[in-house]
Design a protein around this nucleic acid. Structure first.
Lengths: 159, 159
DNA sequence: TATTGTTATACTCTATAACTATA
DNA sequence: TATAGTTATAGAGTATAACAATA
């Protein structure tokens, strides 16, 4: 005896017990975003004592390793739009972490430099950031971490 | 003759020729974020013909593979807050891609299902998403892509 | 009492147009 | 004319509080 026909187009009201995420997990974008959010979550926690958000950290780190860097250079390097950088720099300047000095060759531009306080803060903050990497080596071996970072760079660097 | 003393604390106004990003590039968070943004950028372009943003795609893909999934389940799976999901679902419902049906066992909840149109759209959209993966295999070998995704999952999955 | 879905709302992040001063 | 920095502002994304209906 043939089983009763089921209307093909009417969804049966059944409940989902466990969510199947297998398809999404085949996608690089999904995995990259999830991983980025996980790492950045921890990063945010560890940087709270310094009063630095991830962007602030990136900006100050670039200023530290590139004294005299201009706003424009920061924007292109970090993918920030110039109007959105202004407020960040203002805040960091009010906290006396950076200072704007005249650019030696371009009268329109300002060179950014860390103050003494900014240098001290970033020495500690970068050490904390480096320690965070070491902590993730509990999920990943040091070799896996190196491989991962290398592959990520292959993804975002222009070919 | 001794060279003239340079005041140690006064930053010399020098220009930065090329930005040194080496420190940031040692950080997993920085690399993961850059890679995620690069992939998602391409994803956004490819999904434009379908009128889907990355979140819309994730939602519809989960509904496709989990017919009857509830809003709550979507939120916990994707890390979206319930108030922010409401508008998305409303829009997708107005486009007649999903429909809300009563949940078989919980009178408070609604089970989400793809409409016939939604099924057709997502068949194509998921195929496009899978092709995008293949395209990144020009920067990465298939083996590297598998390794990368495996390592990313190690990073964001709870230990 | 706790949870699902919802509204209202605020806050942050990101994006666009336009101005100024220098090149 | 083109560019660096800035202002003002709009839009998207993300957050919290509170409520009705149901468990």
């Amino acid at each position: 005896m043939p089983r009763p026909a089921v209307p093909a187009r009417t969804p049966l009201p059944r409940a989902v017990e466990e969510v199947d995420t297998r398809f999404l997990e085949t996608l690089l974008g999904y995995n990259a975003r999830r991983a980025a959010l996980a790492v950045i979550d921890v990063f945010v926690q560890r940087m709270e004592p310094y009063g630095l958000k991830p962007v602030d950290f990136s900006v100050l780190s670039l200023v530290r390793h590139n004294p005299g860097i201009t706003s424009r250079q920061l924007c292109t390097t970090l993918g920030i739009l110039p109007p959105n950088l202004v407020g960040m720099i203002n805040t960091l300047e009010k906290r006396e972490l950076v200072e704007r000095l005249p650019h030696p060759r371009d009268g329109r531009a300002m060179g950014l430099h860390l103050t003494t306080g900014g240098q001290k803060l970033m020495r500690d903050a970068e050490k904390t950031a480096a320690e965070l990497e070491a902590d993730f080596a509990s999920r990943l071996t040091p070799a896996e971490l190196r491989t991962l970072i290398g592959l990520l760079q292959k993804v975002y660097r222009e070919p």
